[in-house]
């Protein structure tokens, strides 16, 4: 492959999963119509979902899931040492995600509730960046395939990808959606990073903040708006803590 005379290298990639639902990994293997082109531009050397073969000679590691056990820490550190670029994919890896629910209760209660008579050694939920240095966060729950492909194109070209800094509202208005607030629903769109084409509000479902907060989001103003509209703090708290994207605003 060449771009304006520059020879482009096919990066060798590995895809790895930690604590999570594997939905983000599945997204990468999804969408047959572009899969052929995708594999033309990258060389997959380690990806359990598409091949049982695997080697550790990769340049870019896409890592899904949050970190909850010590063995995961060791495995992640090994990946970090190998990869030139480490990309956290999905809300679990970037934010802690839904798994973070666990951190709201005493650990012993959680272990007892989930594992009963067969307890396992599990710790609090951590984001990848709490354990190793992360080069790129690819947000979303799950990640979007088109955004993943966009990221791959940037990596092949050697460009640092720039994610939208603006909130979901921009793209929501561009879809000509009715504002879900007008329909009485709560929405975190005004403080959540855009780039998802407002897929939830488009389907009349308020935003839950899976992509993390937008740059310099105005939380005070949003809290004022939510309370003025009669949402209870308990309800608000449940929403903003869901993906662990807005720590400490309520």
């Amino acid at each position: 492959m060449k771009y304006l005379g520059i020879t482009l290298e096919r990066p060798k990639i590995g895809v790895f999963g930690f604590t999570g639902c594997e939905g983000c990994q599945l997204q990468i293997a999804n969408k047959e119509e572009t899969l052929k082109n995708l594999f033309n531009s990258i060389e997959v050397v380690n990806f359990r979902e598409i091949s049982s073969d695997g080697c550790d000679d990769y340049d870019v590691a896409f890592v899904e899931g949050s970190i909850t056990t010590e063995s995961e820490v060791t495995r992640l550190q090994k990946i970090r040492n190998q990869a030139k670029i480490l990309v956290a994919i999905g809300a679990c890896a970037c934010l802690g995600g839904v798994n973070n629910l666990k951190s709201r209760f005493p650990l012993s209660d959680v272990v007892k509730e989930v594992y009963g008579m067969h307890p396992v050694d599990t710790g609090p939920v951590r984001r990848l960046q709490d354990v190793v240095s992360v080069d790129i966060d690819l947000p979303g729950c799950p990640i979007s395939k088109s955004e993943f492909e966009w990221l791959v194109r940037n990596l092949v070209l050697g460009i640092k990808p720039q994610f939208p800094q603006y909130p979901v509202c921009v793209e929501c208005k561009q879809q000509l959606n009715s504002c879900v607030f007008d329909m009485g629903m709560m929405c975190l769109g005004p403080v959540t990073r855009g780039g998802c084409n407002a897929i939830c509000p488009r389907n009349r479902f308020g935003c839950w903040g899976c992509r993390g907060h937008s740059e310099e989001a105005n939380f005070e103003s949003l809290m004022r708006i939510l309370r003025e509209r009669g949402f209870e703090d308990e309800h608000i708290s449940e929403r903003i803590n869901f993906f662990n994207a807005f720590n400490g605003i309520l």
């Binding site: 909130p167 103003s221 949003l222």
Partner: peptide
């Protein structure tokens, strides 16, 4: 400005 969410809704509509 303190109230503004910097969400761009005004310009879009």
């Amino acid at each position: 400005g303190d109230k503004c969410l910097s969400c761009g809704s005004c310009a879009m509509v």
